[in-house]
Amino acid sequence: MTTADEARAASGQSDAALAAPATDSTPNTVDGIAFARLYGEPLFKLPQDLYIPPDALEVFLETFEGPLDLLLYLIRKQNFNVLDIPMAEVTNQYLGYVEQLRKTNLELAAEYLLMAAMLIEIKSRMLLPVKKADTGDEAEDPRAELVRRLLEYEQMKLAAQRLDQLPQLGRDFLRAEVYIEQSITPRFPDVNTDDLRSAWADVIKRAKLVQHHKISREELSVREHMSVILRRLQGARFMEFSELFDTTRGVPVVVVNFIAMLELSRESLIEITQAEPFAPIYVRLAYLPA
């Protein structure tokens, strides 16, 4: 065989080995999905040397919220009368559960040990002969305090269950939320006549509280009023005092007119006379000698 033939034979053997490998490396799976990953690599079947501790799959079927809950569970499960508890049987069952609990969780078992001590004490007192009290009445049942606590706990537990059955937001129903697109055009409320009358009365009331009194300044001349008085007295011999005042023009004119009359009297241009007390007052021009 030549060298070329040997090369072709070796090449053919290597191609056959690649086409049909000695061991099948394809994982034995149906859907090709790994159920776990170990160090990033897919794991399609459990390893043969996997160690599972004996207590790894231990399951607690009943969980209790405390010693009273466990004791009530033992009584109700066996249909015992709460008012006549068989302490021997219930205590043995209770101690069996506490012993099992101590092996797994010592801290949690401490809560149940006090109740266990109480059950043992009641059981011991029931074994002793009953003694009457000093008053002659029968001695109280050692189980009375325990029965009272059990009945109160059962009432609270039933009330809690009834409350839990009520519909709760987020658990039984959800709050409905509806988005309503508001209209762009505003809608104003209607106004009746009573509202308008009340608003108008309020405006009038506020207007009366704020009032303004405008004072206008009028320039009045005393000399001018002196001339007016002299002209009026020239055509009459006497004139009554009140006839010389024009009350229709207001108080300022009357005051200036009175000042003008006083000024004329001071300058001896007029005479103011009266015949007797409370008699009318007259005004006339002063007599001037020739």
Rank of each mutant, 00 (worst) to 15 (best):
Q155M: 07
A160Q: 11
E41T: 08
V147C: 00
A20Y: 07
A34R: 07
L150E: 06
R206S: 12
F80I: 05
V253Y: 04
L18I: 15
L220T: 02
I215E: 06
K103F: 07
H225G: 01
L174F: 13
T3H: 06
Q274H: 04
K45V: 08
M261A: 04
Y97A: 03
K103I: 14
G96D: 14
L262D: 07
S14L: 15
S124R: 15
K123N: 11
Y282H: 03
I184V: 15
Q13Y: 08
R148E: 09
E218P: 01
I75M: 00
A109Y: 02
L158S: 05
A207D: 14
V283G: 01
P54C: 05
L43C: 14
F258I: 11
E181H: 14
P189C: 00
L61A: 13
G235I: 04
R237T: 09
G235R: 13
R223V: 12
S216A: 03
Y39N: 11
A36R: 05
G250A: 01
A199M: 12
E267V: 02
E181M: 08
I120A: 12
Y73Q: 00
Q274M: 04
R37N: 08
M118Q: 15
L151W: 02
S11N: 14
M118I: 04
F60A: 10
G96W: 10
L285G: 04
I75N: 00
V178T: 11
F80V: 03
A109L: 03
I281S: 00
A139G: 04
L50F: 14
P42N: 07
Y179I: 14
A110H: 06
I52W: 03
G96S: 12
E62M: 00
S227A: 13
D141I: 02
D5N: 05
A279V: 02
A17W: 10
L119I: 02
P47S: 13
L113G: 02
V178A: 15
T193F: 09
Q48K: 10
R37T: 06
L169P: 00
P277H: 00
A286Y: 10
A7V: 09
A286N: 13
Y287N: 12
R37A: 04
R148V: 09
V98M: 03
D55W: 04
D69H: 07
L169M: 13
M126D: 13
L83F: 12
A201P: 11
V30G: 13
I229H: 11
E99M: 12
A110T: 04
A22C: 06
A36F: 09
R206P: 00
Q211P: 02
Q182M: 10
I204Y: 10
T63S: 13
